[in-house]
């Protein structure tokens, strides 16, 4: 666990910088914005206790909100995702359970497994995010299409990030 701490801090900083400096300035058609930072919450160790996951999710979201001037919006969505994550992992668990020390990444469980897991998580997160954003608005159609388009963009960026990350059983 301690061994992972440095690597996680590094990947956290890298993901956050890419998100803030590159992706947030990339307005594809005014609707679509990839939220790569979700990846950081997806690849935390399987055995991480639920409360720690929620707390990490809360502060990750808050940090994003500070940069985006949307205090509370991303925080609510990341907390929701972190609450959902243990159940998601249970759905996709291997037949004889997770080995101790395994990480929910492509390196550990293969690309197909990872993309299935990531798709469900990203769609859930974006759905929550965009309905929170539309707070007080009643245009479910627009919000849904925004969710789907942005989810596709996020997944594409996450796939790229996973392809570039190491194949070894590290992060």
């Amino acid at each position: 666990m301690i061994n992972y701490l440095g690597r996680y801090l590094l990947s956290f900083a890298a993901i956050l910088l890419i998100q803030i400096l590159v992706l947030n300035n990339l307005n594809l058609g005014g609707y679509v914005n990839p939220w790569l930072y979700v990846l950081f919450l997806l690849i935390l160790p399987v055995e991480m206790p639920g409360w720690l996951l929620l707390v990490i999710g809360f502060f990750t979201g808050l940090l994003m909100d500070l940069f985006l001037n949307t205090i509370g919006m991303h925080t609510a969505a990341t907390v929701f995702l972190c609450f959902l994550r243990p159940s998601l992992l249970r759905i996709f668990a291997p037949r004889d359970g997770y080995e101790p020390g395994s990480l929910p990444t492509r390196a550990h469980f293969g690309l197909a497994w990872f993309m299935k897991y990531a798709s469900l998580a990203v769609v859930a997160h974006h759905l929550f995010l965009f309905f929170t954003e539309a707070f007080g608005f009643s245009k479910p159609g627009a919000t849904l299409s925004k969710t789907l388009l942005s989810s596709a963009a996020t997944l594409a960026v996450i796939l790229l990030a996973q392809l570039f990350s190491s194949q070894q059983k590290r992060i």
């Binding site: 929620l54 999710g57 509370g72 919006m73 925080t75």
Partner: peptide
């Protein structure tokens, strides 16, 4: 804990 953190988030959002 989830409810508590969401409450804070929405409080911040609305406020």
């Amino acid at each position: 804990l989830f409810l508590f953190l969401e409450t804070i988030s929405f409080y911040l959002l609305v406020n």
